[in-house]
């Protein structure tokens, strides 16, 4: 077992730098999710840790060992790929045993490990099938099994759930989480799905354009997003943003509405309001005309412009709401739930 340390990792393709001085300390046994939009460099970062991609500058430590110059096989890692990368001509058993066979592990020990992993993953009855005879979820398990039998110090997951259908994805997500807790192996998981990230990770690293926007627990990211990007990325539906003018402990929205805040600021700011934090309040400062309703059962989403502007916003009300299209409603929210960001830097104020 070992932690991982990334020290100022940089990756360039020719003159283009795609990852900029990524630093992180990942503790032993921790489950870290790297999340970000496509093209942000998250897979590249993972592949650099795996050794599949060269490192332009900076260092990767697994445990106390600097692994920059090591082949992937010598880094004591296991990786689960998006398309599983199972060897199509080998049976499930051979797929799982292949890495161990190359390491010249005794046959009996290989059999024991494969059997054990297969039982953990409930694929013992499929051991003699070929990957093409398995469903997507089962292939996924085999890919996991191939990682488990190696008993590595680190698991690396490269969007392993994105080829599964929605229901199976939720199920596998929980299973991966349980498995990781049970085995206690340090894991890094790459995804573009923020829900997946929030449910899986002990900590999340939000990447955007090759920079780390924020690295923290899911609750930290939700409650105190460090930047406009993180605030917009974490939470569903996404946060509403307005350009506003701050004056001490309140901000004035574009339509003149004054919203009290807990953060103190002056001048131009970006004000962020989460859809689920706004509550109906006949004397509230924020007025919206409902243009569109989405009834999701548990919640009702109200879409419409902020009164007096053409800026769209979303509000999420609990339960099945009796609101009608065309209603004009007022909302308010507690000052500590208003998020203020610097208008120039997009960073959180205070």
């Amino acid at each position: 077992m070992a932690g991982i340390t990334l020290d100022s990792l940089t990756k360039s393709y020719g003159p283009t730098e795609v990852l900029h001085h990524i630093g992180a300390d990942i503790e032993d046994g921790e489950f870290v999710v790297i999340v970000g939009p496509s093209g942000c460099g998250k897979s590249t970062l993972l592949r650099m840790i795996a050794g599949l991609e060269s490192i332009t500058s900076g260092e990767v430590f697994i445990g106390d060992k600097m692994v920059n110059g090591l082949e992937p096989a010598d880094r004591d890692i296991a990786m689960v790929f998006q398309n599983y990368a199972l060897y199509p001509h080998m049976t499930v058993r051979q797929n799982m045993a292949y890495g161990l066979k190359i390491r010249k592990m005794p046959k009996a020990e290989i059999d024991r490990r494969v059997q054990e992993a297969a039982e953990i993953l409930e694929i013992a009855q499929y051991l003699d099938r070929k990957p093409r005879q398995l469903s997507g979820g089962q292939r996924q398990r085999v890919a996991m099994g191939r990682a488990i039998v190696r008993d590595p110090q680190v698991f690396l997951f490269d969007e392993p759930l994105s080829n599964l259908d929605a229901k199976l994805r939720v199920q596998m997500r929980l299973e991966i989480r349980k498995l990781q807790k049970r085995l206690g192996v340090t894991s890094i998981f790459v995804t573009h799905d923020q829900v997946e990230a929030m449910t899986l990770g002990d900590r999340l690293m939000v990447l955007n354009g090759g920079y780390v926007e924020q690295f923290g627990t899911p609750i930290e990211l939700y409650e105190r997003p460090a930047s406009v990007f993180v605030a917009g990325f974490i939470g569903s539906p996404a946060m509403n943003f307005f350009r506003a003018t701050a004056d001490g402990l309140s901000v004035t929205l574009p339509n003149g509405a004054v919203v009290p805040t807990a953060q103190s600021a002056r001048g131009g700011v970006i004000c962020g309001l989460r859809p689920e934090h706004l509550v109906r309040d006949p004397s509230g400062p924020i007025e919206m005309e409902v243009e569109l309703l989405e009834h999701l059962g548990g919640v009702t989403l109200l879409h419409g412009p902020l009164q007096g502007t053409d800026q769209q916003m979303v509000i999420s009300l609990e339960g099945i709401s009796e609101v009608q299209i065309g209603d004009r409603l007022r909302f308010s929210l507690p000052p500590e739930l208003v998020h203020l960001f610097d208008a120039q830097t997009d960073r959180r104020i205070g």
Binding site: E71, P72, M79, G99
Partner: peptide
């Protein structure tokens, strides 16, 4: 990925 997987397998 097949190559990468094999590389990780050693």
């Amino acid at each position: 990925e097949m190559l990468e997987s094999a590389r990780i397998d050693g």
